[in-house]
Design a binder for these strands. Sequence first.
RNA 1: GCUACUGUGGCUCAGUCGGUAGAGCAAUUGAUUCGUAAUCAAUAGGUCAGGGGUUCGAGUCCCCUCAGUAGCUCCA
Length: 643
Amino acid sequence: MKITLKDGSVKEYPQPMSVFDIAKDLSEGLARAACAGVVDGETEDLRTVIDKDRDVNICTANDPEGLAALRHTTSHVMAQAVKRLYPEIKLAIGPSIADGFYYDVDSETPLTAEDLEKIEAEMKKIVKEAYPIERFTKPREEAIAYMRERKEPYKVELIEDLPEDAEISFYQQGEFVDLCAGPHLMSTKDVGKAYKLTSLAGAYWRGNEHNKMLTRIYGTAFGKKAELDAYLTMMEEAKKRDHRKLGKELGLFMMHEAGPGFPFFLPKGMALKNTLLDYWREIHRKAGYVEIASPIILNRRLWETSGHWDHYKANMYTTVIDEEDYAVKPMNCPGGVLVYASEPRSYRDLPLRMGELGIVHRHEKSGQLHGLMRVRCFTQDDAHIFMTPEQIKDEIMGVARLIDGVYSLFGFQYHVELSTRPEDSMGSDEDWEMATEGLRTALDELGLDYVVNEGDGAFYGPKIDFHLVDAIGRTWQCGTIQLDFQLPQRFELEYMGADGEKHRPIMIHRVAFGSIERFIGILTEHFAGAFPTWLAPVQVKILPISDKFADYAKKVKEAMDKAGIRGEIDLRSEKIGYKIRSAQLEKIPYMLVVGQKEEEEGVVAVRSRAAGDEGQKPLSDFIEDIKKEIQSREIRVMEKKEE
RNA sequence: GCUACUGUGGCUCAGUCGGUAGAGCAAUUGAUUCGUAAUCAAUAGGUCAGGGGUUCGAGUCCCCUCAGUAGCUCCA
């Protein structure tokens, strides 16, 4: 028989061979990760025997399927080690995931970090013992009885959910058997040495918060030790750019027990925030938006009309004032609606794009707070667009382009999701259908790729979400575009049409940054605190060589103030090297070293964070250059330097 | 909210078997006046998150509360 491999090469064998045997034959390296044998594009069992000429796609650890099978096998080895050390522990599920694998287990006594070490040591033995991994199947009823006998209640539950006529597959390695669809490596020895157990956490059985919480053991595995090391180093690097750490070091924001989840912005963080807001106002002015501000606290009747009292109360801060119920706004939309309704509107006014940098408060559960990324009080760069049905598509496309422009400016990668009607929602089926189609059409027309999130929309309408990818590959929802037929109805909004009749407008809710706080968190990690000059809280630090040049330094600072450049002077009696070091650690884009030469000639010695010493320049030239850089919102990439 | 872990000067951390709190950086003061990533010295700074318990004695052991961290669930 003759087989054609994925790489195009052709191999001939005198007799039928299994996918595994072929992989094994090819080379040591391939065999090791020849886990997910793919024949004719279909994943098949590794023992699938190939008896005639075919195309065979053998994975290596570099292929996503191969890596997944390697990790999945590692999770089985881990489960085997856990059962050897703690036979009373019950196993739940153990899949491979984006960064590695996990196994959920049910343990009476909590596992500790020391247990992880023990488990790793036991895994090492199992790998060394080189058990062949064998697959076998049983009919459903037999499979249930089998797992009952082995005292694995979670496995029993899993099998019970499978169809009655299902043939259940198991994988065995030595004394260990696990319910599993596969595929796996051929032997425990193929797991190799490039694996590590990374952390312990809780996780609900089947992801349902009403179920028991199990212990989740996380780990990761790679084809090569060097790749594992690179991954671990990358995670260490990511920790260094954590916005909570940098936020403290750079004096951007702080948290206080007095208000868990309510961030305090420090002067430098506020400078950054205001710069972002200036940018936001500029692009929105250009895109034809007007700006409003609506009150933070509004009464219960309003929230009942909007539907929030029924659908969002669990997350709202409420209070009683003069015997009337009030709520702190968790969203800005009702305020925007009231402004729309404050005067008669004509079709000539539409689309009416009304922006609001609205501060909202939401009572998030304590465990979900996370620095600036998840807070209880945040600023939404909100806008509500009121329009006619004919304007829907163009408006959505306009918003999507605006959001794309914002993300591109910072060099962000993002992906798009379309979320449809949730269970707890209001409005008619037809409205939901129409709104969802409107969003879908706009996305298709823009040629944007998106995934659909069934049942993930807001209670008043479907939405398009923009998810940014952060420094360690996590994604955060930032921008959203939501189409809403409900609020205009509930508030009986109208406009006078060209036909002289009253019509109901349609509404878009949208944000670009999403939450300014979250966006600042993501920006901080994205730039590792080294913000581009236009955003940097301090753009220039003036460093006099000695106290004698303090006066000239002050003159330079005044020139900065006058030019609208954010500058500071370091007047400490320290040596220039020390001042440079501290300015560099503060990640300030430009340092101006001034001494005798500079004072006499009216120049400054420029040192940039990115490129180091850039030589002398007349002060006026420097100001002109930096103003240009700020205006263009250019990103000068920071070069790798030791710290 | 749930599971596990953590909480010691402004920051980063040490503190042994339960014996009465320590370092570096930062700050302040003094000396130094210096040319591109750390000058020297002195001083000040802590109800060991808060409360309760065990003990002759608790930063250390136990319980409760609060806050934080990882993940789950939920979300911008």
